[in-house]
Each structure stands twice: as C-alpha cells, then as structure tokens.
C-alpha cells in the first residue's frame, strides 16, 4: 500500500508539472518556479471541483478552453488581502517613511502584485491624509487581468468594511474610513478621487521587465510563493526600478537576507521589512 502511495504521488507530481508546462507553453503564464507544494494544493483543489478523471484531462481542457485556464489563474492568484493589512506597517509608512518623501517634488510608487487593490487604496488614503497624494503616481500591477479589473473597480463587500475600519484606525487614520467610500446595495465603492493618480495595469513579475523608475516599491506577500531563483529575479527587477535611496517594502515574513541582491539594500525599518537602496559612494 505504501509503495502504491509513493508511486501514485510520483505520477501525480509528474502530471502537475506537465499541466504547469502546458499552461506556460500555450498562454505564457509561468508557474514553474512557484512553490511546488502551494501550486499542487491549488491545482488539486481545482481538480476536485472539476469532476475530471485525472490531471491529464485538465491538461487537455486547459489547452482547449481558455475559460478553464482563467479559473486556474484565479486559483494561483493570491486573493486574500485587506485594507491596511498589518496596520503597524502603514503606521510606519505614515510616521517614518512619508517624512522622507515630503521633500520630493514628485513621488512614484510601484505596488507589485496588488491583487484586488485593497492595499493600493489604503496607500492612496494614507497619502491623501498626509498631503502627498496630489504629487504621487501609483502604478498598481498584477499578472491576473480579472483581478486588475476588480482592483480598478474598487468595490468591496460592505461587510468587510468593519474589519478594514479597525485596521485603518490602528494605522493612525485621521478621519473615518467611511469618508472614503459610498454605499450601494451591500457594496462599498471607493471614491473616484482616490483613483485619480493610480494606474492599474497587468504586469507579470515572472516574465515581464522593468517599466519605470520609482521611489517606492511595495510587494508584500508575493515573494513567499516563489522559489529562490524566482525571488532573486524579482528582486533584481526592484533593484533596477529603484534609484539610490529608493525604498522597498516586503511582507512581514519576507526578507532579503538570502537574496543575492542583499548587498544592494540596507534595512531601514527591519520590523516592518522596509529596505532602502544603498547609496553608492
């Protein structure tokens, strides 16, 4: 029985690799350097819902049916997020990072892997309250076009606003979160003025290249899904996007310690995983 288990595990892993490869070859979405255990869980989850006989059937379906692939892309997207997630991080931005940005005539921010946009709007609100938003340009990107569309809409279930409000207050919010949205049949729609200086666009960290020089890169809880090789590639993109003194913000369980680009940065606020690109002498 044990032997059978091990063999069927091996076969299943091969089939999953083939599926991932097929999606890459046909559609260009490359999950080959994602965490294996994570990709497997997500794909098996889809497999169980699909009612198909085996993973190989999923390969055929993926090649023939773009809608099915869109579903897999959604499975492999990170859609769990919230406004002002990790309030202490936003508090640190407000109290320690924004004073540094005050002197800039123009501020460019790249929010890489922004998912459905909750954290992008959090940033916009924060900057508005600190009087920085008018001279800021935010590029908010994600590889998944469906999710970018959601982010652009900026409409979230009303029942999540209570939780978001608590975060907002903990992050040092100066007013009430409800100042920033209107209510429409069970949904909260964020105000258009928040979107004024945000460009939402698809960009794939795995396969696309640098598109702008920015002062601040935010990429939180994205790198944890990548293997070391891919993490390094993505951090190189950030190095190439940031001038000396530019800032990089990672998720609470991410760090640069093992990256080959570690020497390019100094930790600025280690607890919140905020790094500054070194000045070259």
């Amino acid at each position: 029985m044990k032997k059978n288990q091990n063999e069927s595990l091996e076969n299943q892993d091969i089939e999953i690799r083939l599926l991932v490869d097929a999606i890459y070859q046909k559609y260009g979405y490359d999950f080959r350097n994602y965490s294996q255990a994570h990709v497997k869980r997500r794909i098996l989850n889809r497999f169980n819902l699909s009612g198909m006989k085996n993973i190989t059937d999923m390969i055929h379906e993926s090649l023939a049916n773009r809608k099915f692939v869109d579903q897999i892309l959604m499975d492999l997207s990170i859609t769990v997020t919230e406004m002002f997630r990790d309030p202490a991080f936003y508090k640190a931005l407000r109290e320690e990072i924004f004073p540094l940005l005050q002197s800039y005539p123009f501020i460019k921010i790249w929010h890489a892997g922004c998912s459905s946009g909750e954290e992008v709007y959090s940033m916009a609100i924060l900057m508005k309250e600190e009087g920085l938003y008018e001279r800021t340009q935010i590029y908010a990107t994600d590889f998944n076009p469906v999710i970018i569309k959601q982010a652009k809409d900026g409409v979230y279930p009303l029942n999540r606003m209570k939780e978001f409000s608590v975060n907002y207050q903990k992050a040092g919010g100066k007013g009430s979160l409800s100042d920033y949205y209107t209510i429409n049949s069970g949904d909260a729609k964020l105000l258009e003025i928040l979107k004024k200086n945000i460009v939402f666009a698809t960009h794939n960290l795995v396969t696309d290249s640098v598109f702008a020089e920015v002062n601040l890169v935010i990429c939180r809880n994205v790198l944890i899904y990548f293997d070391r090789y891919l993490q390094d590639r993505v951090i190189k993109l950030f190095v190439d996007s940031l001038p000396e003194g530019g800032l990089l913000c990672l998720g609470s369980k991410e760090n640069l310690q093992f990256s080959s680009h570690y020497h390019e940065f100094n930790p600025l606020i280690p607890k919140e995983k905020i790094y500054i690109r070194k000045y070259l002498l």
Binding site: D13, S35, Q36, A37, H38, R41, R42, I78, V80, N221, I224, Y225, K253
Partner: peptide
C-alpha cells in the same frame, strides 16, 4: 499564515484562504 512543507523539506508560507 499556512505552513507547508516542500518536497525538499523547506518551509513555504502562504496566505491562502
């Protein structure tokens, strides 16, 4: 965070559902 073990025994953390 979810804690996953990779085939090479390294840890992966995710924030899935």
């Amino acid at each position: 965070y979810h804690l996953l073990i990779e085939p090479d025994h390294t840890f992966t953390l995710t924030i899935d559902e």
